[in-house]
Design a binder for these strands. Structure first.
Lengths: 324, 324
DNA sequence: CTGAAAGCGCTAACAC
DNA sequence: GTGTTAGCGCTTTCAG
């Protein structure tokens, strides 16, 4: 792998001049020509490692998400990517798999590779961002708040979404509205179920709410299992609020398997049902602006990378419910 | 950010000793203890950039895929990740977006960050891997062959899949079987449609095959548009082979919109229909072992990184069709 | 077993 | 406008 010195030698100039033409600093056209020719001949690729070491920063940002197989997060990733590319940054995607250990490892990599910044959807409420903070690296939390750390964040109003979902179901005439939500140490899971609880406490049939609440993983199987469980209760619910897209699919599978087709059984889901061949009918979906979350997070990050030092901001995006 | 020198000073040893402790080389227990204590106190994180510059290689591999929003590729990514993590490597995911320009940029980054290797699903037949090859970096192509470059590859038998798909449809009694495939410069798209053509030429009703073939992008909208077009033909088909999962969903949308429910209209799709709430009935799916493709590719890459220099291998995974 | 010192390839003062 | 040179932080001979 050719170095700047070899290029310099071939072009008959100093390494500094080569560096200058590679970086677009002013150099006389003749020399620039020679350098470019030499670089081409040697198939020269600048060594980013060396450059990063010297400059103490790179042009790549890390995006750490908890589930790369969830279309919500890939869509968010597209948003981040598009925005970052527009500013000349590349983004590398890291899958924490809802695991704080893996998350910590990726944070470590981002840090020690001197990446320009990181955007992350924390794997848990206890995610440790202190390494990022203490080294003053630009960070923004997305989808889930940065529990206990004072950094930029962009989320949606999950509690309001929970309220809207439950309200929609009660308005449709259902009486026993259950709730399937995510892990109890994940913010979105808590808030969404809290929204549901608030409404259910007021409008429910007075039965024990905790019996109608299920915490599970944010996956298809989790939703299916929880739904199956709820259906086999002595007094089963007649409707359910499901806290994410994947679990929504699982719940729907369980319902259909039991011969219950919405709106025969009430169903409200957070996030769009991905890749549905037909517009889901009889299902209330709380639309989550995934891509926009990504774009916004990237925008905030770019500002921080640019040197913005104002106090941490939290931006809350609107999520419209769309009953269908 | 603390350096090895500061740790050394605090521990009263040389930088070399600190380095040794951090890397697990033999050091007396007393010194090792002192070093670890100092490192902890200073919240020391080794600088990977410097290490990589010095060692000329890193412990991260790049995975470049053409569409991060396609569950087939995210599933493949999980396979790569799991296998790589098992060997102590981290993987960063790059989305080429079916764009050779972006792809080239990511290859460049992988190269100039001295990543240990790269696995990529080429954006096109003309993808330029020469930079990787000439620098002798470990590379393996996955899902799509490495057109014209002699490197390891892992694929499925796409032509056979096309044959199986078309055959299944004719066997079901359909007479005019059309085909919706991907971009004409993408290998999988070509091979899958070739498989179809071979069968259709033999068993079709003798009408012009090219009129029944559509090339489009590998996306939902592409599939939907192409299906709509086919349906509006003077002599529309009565069945269709669709070359990927996303287009399959689009095609299904168009069919349902037209009031045509499989198996009323024949449908065979490559790749599992993701996140389907119910097992698709009346649809033939050619199962693609996405995760396994990833695992296998990562395994080959790990071998190459380990120094294996045998001639380039191509491994072809089995893809079973499952009519349902 | 430990330390000194020479770079890895690049950039950025600082001279000229 | 261009060249010289001193590092960025780490690993790794090479001595001791």
């Amino acid at each position: 792998m050719a170095t700047i010195y070899e290029v310099a030698a071939l072009a008959g100039v100093s390494p500094a001049t080569v560096s200058r033409v590679m970086n677009g600093t002013k150099v006389s056209p003749e020399l620039a020509g020679l350098v470019r020719k030499a670089a081409r001949e040697l198939d020269f690729t600048p060594n980013r490692t060396a450059r990063t070491l010297r400059r103490q920063n790179s042009e790549v940002i890390a995006l750490i998400i908890p589930d790369i197989e969830n279309p919500f997060f890939t869509s968010l990733a597209r948003g981040v990517e598009d925005r970052a590319q527009a500013s000349g940054y590349s983004v590398v995607l890291c899958n924490s798999d809802e695991d704080m250990g893996k998350e910590a490892r990726y944070i470590d990599i981002a840090l020690s590779e001197h990446m320009a910044g990181v955007i992350l959807a924390p794997a848990s409420d206890h995610s440790d961002l202190s390494a990022l903070i203490s080294r003053k690296r630009p960070v923004v939390a997305v989808d889930r708040g940065p529990h206990g750390f004072s950094i930029d964040a962009v989320t949606v109003d999950n509690r309001a979404g929970g309220v809207a979902a439950a309200t929609a179901l009660f308005d449709q005439g259902f009486l026993r509205v259950a709730c399937i939500t995510g892990p109890s140490d994940v913010e979105t899971a808590q808030l969404r179920s809290e929204g549901w609880r608030e409404v259910a406490a007021r409008r429910g049939d007075g039965s024990d709410l905790e019996a109608l609440l299920r915490h599970t993983n944010y996956r298809v199987e989790g939703g299916r299992a929880a739904m199956t469980e709820l259906l086999s209760l002595p007094e089963p619910p007649d409707a359910v609020v499901v806290a994410n897209n994947l679990m929504g699919i699982g719940a729907l599978q369980a319902l259909l398997a039991a011969g219950l087709t919405p709106p025969q059984f009430g169903l409200a889901v957070f996030g769009d049902l991905p890749f549905s061949p037909l517009a889901p009918s009889g299902i209330t979906v709380i639309h989550l602006p995934a891509r926009q979350l990504g774009v916004t997070a990237a925008t905030l990050l770019m500002e921080r990378i640019g040197g913005d030092t104002q106090p941490a901001r939290t931006v809350v995006l609107r999520n419209e419910s769309a009953a269908t």
